[in-house]
């Protein structure tokens, strides 16, 4: 009885799926999906070699400091870094006093201790990087309807990570390729948008933050990508440092267990 019911259930599902497959195949032949501009012109991230790659990778302190500088001068006008505290910057090689100076360059929301009214004060090492906008509505209003995302986790929140950040920053093109406009006349970059083949739909609201034809742009993009990787994964060095001894221990442990396995089983195996 079980087998008969199972057989019928199997016939039903397989039949349904077979029928669907024929219809899908028919649709594919009769109405092939039209190619899209994204499919043909979207580009994969450019390969970049960073110091933190590989099992012994570590951050390049000087590069992170330069990256912070780029964030400070360019990105912070629109993008927050709200998961990162100023005190964390000591990991970049800054002394306590330097961290205090950097923190003081940012204004953080606060309450007046006398009146209780909302105000801003200078940042301290205990504060986190503030968001440049009071809320998403203010962010939208100031940016043509688009909310600039927080950058704290950006280097982990996109396929390609820091390489994606680098590719996007260096990938702007002043003009769309002629071939694209010829093939997809509807895909002309709209007003207030900027053509960048590394962005998912090829056009993004962010104007090129680094000048397109500038000798410094490539280095700055690399530096800020490395800095954002640190911001997203500040414990990467601890992870690598504890990983190596852990692996050595586990390999020794496994070798010992293998040897004892062989010894214990010696008289039970075929010789």
């Amino acid at each position: 009885m079980v087998r008969i019911i199972a057989f019928l259930v199997g016939l039903f599902f397989s039949g349904m799926l077979g029928y669907s497959a024929i219809r899908t195949g028919y649709t594919m032949v009769t109405e092939p999906a039209a190619p899209t501009a994204e499919e043909e012109f979207h580009q994969h991230v450019k390969p970049v070699s960073f110091s933190f790659e590989g099992p012994t990778g570590h951050y390049d302190r000087a590069q992170l400091q330069r990256g912070l500088q780029v964030y400070h001068e360019v990105c912070k006008a629109c993008h927050g870094l709200t998961q990162v505290a100023f005190r964390d910057l000591e990991a970049l090689g800054y002394a306590e006093g330097q961290v205090k100076t950097i923190a003081a360059e940012y204004n953080v929301p606060s309450l007046n201790p006398e009146t209780g009214e909302a105000e801003t004060r200078k940042g301290t090492p205990a504060d986190k990087f503030p968001s440049p906008f009071a809320n998403d509505i203010a962010a939208k209003a100031a940016n043509n309807g688009a909310v600039p995302p927080d950058l704290s986790l950006m280097a982990k929140a996109r396929h390609g990570g820091p390489e994606y950040v680098y590719s996007l920053l260096t990938g702007y093109q002043a003009q769309q390729p002629e071939e694209l406009l010829k093939k997809f006349p509807d895909s002309k970059t709209g007003p207030g948008l900027h053509y960048n083949p590394y962005f998912a739909n090829l056009n993004l609201a962010m104007a090129p933050p680094l000048p397109i034809d500038d000798a410094e742009t490539d280095r700055k993009a690399k530096d800020v990508a490395a800095f954002l990787m640190w911001a997203a994964e500040p414990k990467l060095e601890n992870r690598h440092k504890s990983g190596i001894p852990a692996m050595i221990f586990l390999i020794l442990f496994t070798w010992l267990t293998y040897m004892s396995y062989q010894v214990i089983w010696a008289d039970k195996k075929k010789h």
Partner: peptide
């Protein structure tokens, strides 16, 4: 127990590779 100890070692090596690297 000896054979499973060895198996556990291999399991932990794969696991640690993912977690740390």
């Amino acid at each position: 127990t000896a054979k499973d100890g060895f198996g556990l070692g291999v399991f932990l090596i794969v696991f640690a590779t993912l977690v740390f690297f």
